[in-house]
Amino acid sequence: MGGRFLDTNLLLYLASGDAQKADRAEAVLGQGGTISVQVLNEIANVLRRKIQMSWSDTHVFLDMIRALLTVEPVTQATHETGLRVSERYGLSIYDAMIVAAALLAECDTLISEDMQDGLVIDNRLRIVNPFGQA
C-alpha cells in the first residue's frame, strides 16, 4: 500500500504557458505515480478543446504520460466507490471518481490543485496541493 495518484490539473500544467507550475508539475511527474483512464480522457479533452492542440501532438502528450505513470482502469467498482465518496465528502462526481480510482489503486496521496488540501478520505488517502508547499 502507498503511492501517489496524480490529478488531471497537475498534468495539464505540462502543456500550459505557466512556466513555474509546469516546472513543479514536471518535478512531481518525475517521481512517478498512478492515474486513471478518466485522467487521460480529461487531458485529451482539454488539450483538444481548450488548448487546441493537434491530434498528433495530443497523442504524443498522452503517450508520454502513459509511459511515465501507471494507468488504472475505470471500473464498476470505481463508479460505486466514487458515488459513496461524493455523497460522504461532498465532492463533485468527477472528483470523487478520481478519489475512488486512487483508493482502489491503494494510493495514500492524491496530488491535486482542485480538491481540498489536507482532506483525508477514508482515513487513508490525503489530498495534497503541490503548489501550496512553495
Score class of each variant (00 low, 15 high):
residue 84 R to K: 15
residue 23 D to L: 13
residue 93 I to K: 06
residue 108 D to Y: 13
residue 72 E to Y: 13
residue 44 A to W: 14
residue 12 L to F: 01
residue 123 N to V: 11
residue 110 L to R: 00
residue 102 A to S: 08
residue 70 T to S: 04
residue 38 Q to C: 07
residue 87 E to K: 14
residue 30 G to I: 02
residue 128 V to F: 03
residue 71 V to Y: 09
residue 127 I to L: 01
residue 105 A to M: 01
residue 49 R to N: 02
residue 110 L to H: 04
residue 29 L to Q: 05
residue 8 T to F: 01
residue 15 A to V: 04
residue 41 N to W: 12
residue 121 I to S: 04
residue 129 N to K: 04
residue 26 E to R: 15
residue 118 G to T: 10
residue 58 T to M: 12
residue 33 G to H: 02
residue 104 L to C: 05
residue 86 S to V: 00
residue 123 N to L: 05
residue 20 Q to E: 15
residue 44 A to F: 12
residue 99 V to N: 02
residue 66 R to I: 08
residue 132 G to D: 12
residue 47 L to C: 04
residue 63 D to S: 13
residue 5 F to M: 06
residue 16 S to Y: 07
residue 60 V to Q: 11
residue 63 D to K: 14
residue 35 I to S: 08
residue 45 N to T: 10
residue 58 T to L: 12
residue 17 G to K: 03
residue 45 N to Q: 12
residue 52 Q to L: 12
residue 116 Q to F: 05
residue 96 A to T: 05
residue 125 L to S: 01
residue 111 I to F: 01
residue 134 A to F: 14
residue 103 L to K: 05
residue 74 V to C: 13
residue 116 Q to H: 12
residue 47 L to H: 01
residue 58 T to D: 03
residue 75 T to E: 03
residue 125 L to C: 00
residue 52 Q to A: 14
residue 27 A to P: 04
residue 114 D to N: 09
residue 56 S to N: 07
residue 25 A to S: 09
residue 107 C to E: 04
residue 97 M to T: 12
residue 20 Q to N: 13
residue 133 Q to L: 15
residue 61 F to W: 05
residue 99 V to I: 06
residue 12 L to Q: 02
residue 28 V to I: 15
residue 123 N to D: 14
residue 118 G to A: 06
residue 99 V to L: 00
residue 91 L to E: 08
residue 114 D to A: 03
residue 66 R to E: 10
residue 21 K to W: 07
residue 106 E to T: 09
residue 68 L to K: 13
residue 65 I to F: 06
residue 134 A to D: 15
residue 49 R to V: 14
residue 75 T to V: 11
residue 78 T to P: 09
residue 104 L to G: 06
residue 110 L to T: 02
residue 128 V to G: 04
residue 84 R to P: 11
residue 13 Y to N: 07
residue 47 L to D: 05
residue 1 M to I: 11
residue 103 L to Q: 00
residue 8 T to G: 02
residue 131 F to H: 08
residue 134 A to T: 15
residue 96 A to H: 00
residue 45 N to Y: 08
residue 19 A to H: 11
residue 120 V to W: 13
residue 81 T to E: 07
residue 39 V to Y: 05
residue 24 R to I: 11
residue 113 E to Y: 08
residue 51 I to L: 13
residue 73 P to K: 01
residue 34 T to Y: 11
residue 71 V to T: 12
residue 2 G to H: 04
residue 25 A to K: 06
residue 7 D to S: 02
